[in-house]
Every structure is written in structure tokens, then in C-alpha cells.
Write a protein that binds this DNA or RNA. Sequence first.
DNA 1: TAGATTGTTAATCGATTAACAATC
DNA 2: TAGATTGTTAATCGATTAACAATC
Lengths: 218, 218
Amino acid sequence: MLVMLQSPVPGGAPDRLTVGVAARLSRYLQVLTQSKKMGKERISSQEIADYTNINATQIRRDLSNFGKFGKRGVGYSIDSLLAEIRKILRTQGQHNIALVGAGRLGQAIASSQIFAEHGINIAAVFDSDESKIGHDIGGAAIEDERRLKDVVRDKNIVVGVLAVPAGAAQKVADDLVDAGVRIIFNYSEALLDVPSDVTVHTSNPAVELLHALYFHLT
Amino acid sequence: MLVMLQSPVPGGAPDRLTVGVAARLSRYLQVLTQSKKMGKERISSQEIADYTNINATQIRRDLSNFGKFGKRGVGYSIDSLLAEIRKILRTQGQHNIALVGAGRLGQAIASSQIFAEHGINIAAVFDSDESKIGHDIGGAAIEDERRLKDVVRDKNIVVGVLAVPAGAAQKVADDLVDAGVRIIFNYSEALLDVPSDVTVHTSNPAVELLHALYFHLT
DNA sequence: TAGATTGTTAATCGATTAACAATC
DNA sequence: TAGATTGTTAATCGATTAACAATC
């Protein structure tokens, strides 16, 4: 049923979201989660548009691909839309990730609620600094980076978050990949070389800033 | 001349990049900056493609809109391509930004080289915690958050980076906007309400992770 | 020369938008 | 009923890709 709705052309096409749709749905999820926290119960496509800078028609269209989730004249119920999107993105369960680097950035990430809110659990934290090992960070004990491969493999972790200095990033990435990680979030400045079946997401505030500035300057 | 090259259709179109092109050019800039640091002098469109997950043809096409920067059979000179893209994005000068929040995330941002590398200067840092005021962070003295409006206005700052707890984010955003800021990078979980002429970029690792996970799960 | 890589064309596909009837 | 907002159509625009001649 879901597959049929996702491919409106009979006999056609993939039962997989396009990259664009999946990215947008994730952003709706974030807006809904925060709106719910603020006590809201309903939201309109226009309100989601204001927070995401995604066109309201696009939002309604994205959602209507999967069913009629809204009420005309009223909007969408936040709770039920949350459940629907989670179903579509298959993010209902718990996901375990590994964090490497317990410096300032690593600590900021570990103590943030942002992952927990979306069912993402930081299952292991590593650092190479012996003085940090054993200390608690966001509810987990910091482990020796030399144990990374074993722990990641044992816990079947497929996502790694890199919050280490640029100089150490490639070595850590290699270890993560060896241990079975297939998605790396790179918060270092370094460019990472990985096998083609591994996805690297490099997060770079400066890049986004340059791009935003361009539109301010022109 | 530049205008003409940017609008190949005679008599046509904007002298402004589309959002997509500007975003991609910024990412090329990051790859070039890092490659240069690693001592490379030339790079091919395929290498840039490997690091950015942007199609190599797309990259060549983006660049050839502005001139013939490459050498067939050889690739692009990193130095000259850096200069060309900076010219196109008008990011050759120095840009002053304000950072609000000197907690772990704020400290991580302030001490990173990532902004400085791209000519972005953190001209002021604020925090509401009196015990932090006056302390040095990434070369700047932390100032009292109550001075935010005056300082931002005096220094003509148009970009603000929010690294404060979610509960404080809206108030800080209001103050930044009052003081003239037009671009806000929001690293809190909060949704921000701002006037329509202000751009908010919300950076949310969890959102990117959910979206990346979807493709791993399917 | 032989190999590599750019610049460019042409074709396709998905994103974006305005507009509006349906309906809460 | 009157007002609001969804779901959907239709039209346009930009992104994406393969392919390949040009040329270093």
C-alpha cells in the first residue's frame, strides 16, 4: 500500500524516497517536534514554510504523496503528522551512534537533547586523551579511542560522529569504516577519503555562511 | 562582463546566482581550501565530486558559466580557482560576525579556524554568565550580553551565530534583529520567529542524520 | 603520440510555483 | 454562512546526467 502510494504511476518507479523528499521530511519532523514541545497541537503548511523556508505548496505536495493527513480549513494535527512522517522515514526505533572526540564540540553534542529527541542514542564516546577516559559525558562513559574498533563492531553501530581535530580525522574515519560504520558525520575541517559505500556528511558552518552572505551582499 | 557571462541568454535574466549555484560554489571553496592546505596544487572535477557528492559534470558546468578556468587533460589550478570563486561569491573581503553564547559549543566555534580561513572574523562574543565576562575566547574578550545591541550596532555586524540554550534563543534573536543583524545561524533547538527580511539558518545534526539513515535503512 | 580531463550539448527528471476547487 | 487551508492540477524552471568532441 505504501509502495503504491509512493509510486503513483502504475507499474512504475521506486519504493524509495528521492534525496530531496527525504531531506525535506526530516526538516518537517524537526519543526513538528519543536512545535509540540511549545504546546502547539495543530500546524498549517504555511507555518512550517515560515520555519523551513520551504514553499507551502511543496510541503502539502510532499505530504499528500503519502495520504491525506490534513484537514481543510484547519491544518495538520502535530501528533498524527509526527507519527506519519516517522513511519515514512522509518525512524521510529532507536538508533545507536558513536561519538569520537570528547573535547568542547564533542561535549556540546553529547549533552544536547537534539539526538535523543529523535530516537538517536549515543551508545559510545571515545577520546584519545587518557585523562578524559572513564569520565561521564551525557550519560555515557568516555572510552579509550584504541577500543573504538572493538566496541563499534560489538554494538553494531553504523553511524559515527567525528568531533576530533582535523589532523586526527582521517585515522579515526579509517577505524570507523573498518569497524563497520557506513555513515560518518564529519565536524572536523578535514576532507575524508572513504570507500564508495560509505557516506560522509561534512558539516561546515563557514560554507553555509559564505553562501548566505552572498545573498545579503547582492 | 561578469553579468554577461552569468546570463548567457542575450538580453535575459539575473546578474545573481541561483541559490543552488551559490551553495555549490561555497562547497567547492571549502574543498579547494582544504586541498590547498594539504599541499595540492591541481584538482580535477572528479576529485571535487568525490568529496562533495556533487556530480562532476555539474561541477564543470557550474564553473564554465563564469569562464574557462580549467586545462583539459590536467584539471584546475587550486589557487586560481579559489580566486575565481571568491570573486564570484564576493567573499574576498573580511566579514564581521557576532557569536552569542560562550558555552561549550560557543567555545568550540570560537576556537575553530574554520571561519578565519574563509575571511570571517568573530568580532564580538557575548554571554549572560557574569563569571565568563572578560575572559578571552578565540582571541576576543567575552562581553556582557546586555551590551549586545550597542556593540552589534556600533560594529555594523549583520551576521549573528546563536550558541545559547533553546530557552534563551528567541530573546537573543530579537535583540540581534533589533541591532541590525539580517542573517542568523541558529545552533539551538528552538524555532525562531523573525521578520521576513531576516534569514535564519538552523543547523541540526539530528535532522541530517535522520535523512542519512533513511538511505542506509532502505 | 596516448591518456586524461575539460567544456558543452542534448535529453530527462525532479523541484518549484501559482492558482483554485474542495471542504473543514 | 464566511473564512481558512488542504489537496491537486498545470505550467515552468533549474538540476542532473550521459556522452563526446576538443585539447592539454
